[in-house]
Design a protein around this nucleic acid. Sequence first.
DNA 1: GTATTTGCAAATGATTTGCAGTGCT
DNA 2: AGCACTGCAAATCATTTGCAAATAC
Lengths: 133, 133
Amino acid sequence: MKHEHILKHHQLKVTPQRIAIIELMHHRGHISIDDLYTAIKYKFASISLATLYKNVHTMMGVSLIREVKIPGHKSKYEIEKETHAHVMCKECGELKDIPFNAETLLKDTMNISKYVANDISVVISGICPNCQQ
Amino acid sequence: MKHEHILKHHQLKVTPQRIAIIELMHHRGHISIDDLYTAIKYKFASISLATLYKNVHTMMGVSLIREVKIPGHKSKYEIEKETHAHVMCKECGELKDIPFNAETLLKDTMNISKYVANDISVVISGICPNCQQ
DNA sequence: GTATTTGCAAATGATTTGCAGTGCT
DNA sequence: AGCACTGCAAATCATTTGCAAATAC
């Protein structure tokens, strides 16, 4: 329902596969292609990896989702939302959002570098509470 | 000379290939595997991609170099130094260092998430002065 | 009805591995 | 001398592509 609307809002055709992708991302917060494939197969035994790649690509093209590149790990994908940072656990791989206001950093960056800057990716690595024993 | 020393300091054997890799990274600041391969072939016509991959991997293992993962582009590698941010031009791909003090962000992250955080990657995207026409 | 999407299989591209020979310390 | 490093070719893994059938609008 809601997820259908997200697709329409980005002028994408609504297919059950796409709905399933968005549902999963919404539910998990961040998910890798492989995990997406594994999880989605419960609903769509017949879905192909090619379809996932195509859709992930398409959805990034219309800024519906965003890739999170993580040092030393495979990328995860998340639904676009306000700017935030990520903390990632080196032990278990858990990825978590952290509120983060980029204004100052973007302004400083533009002053120093003379770039026109409009996008930022922040990934912090560490050990999560669970993995600290 | 200096580059030999860097290798020894990280307990790696000194080979001409490794010196060439470090020389290039030092000179260019940031370089992708492919560019590294192309550039290094002037000195080492016989060097193999496998050797580059192995060495890059080894050097990351001892924290001599670091991978910079860039949204929408191939990774680049740089010699480890104090924490800093990166700005990357969406047009020409140029990557530049920006001074950045991570203290506050790391502290806040630890408070909020209860992670023990010790590493951070910041990549800002935009358009560089040249590409702005 | 038309254009887009899907799923398959094959193609491509990137990275890793095994191994014999070579070079570093 | 002994172990690590190199370069090659082959293997593996990730992603993309072409195309015919199915589906969305």
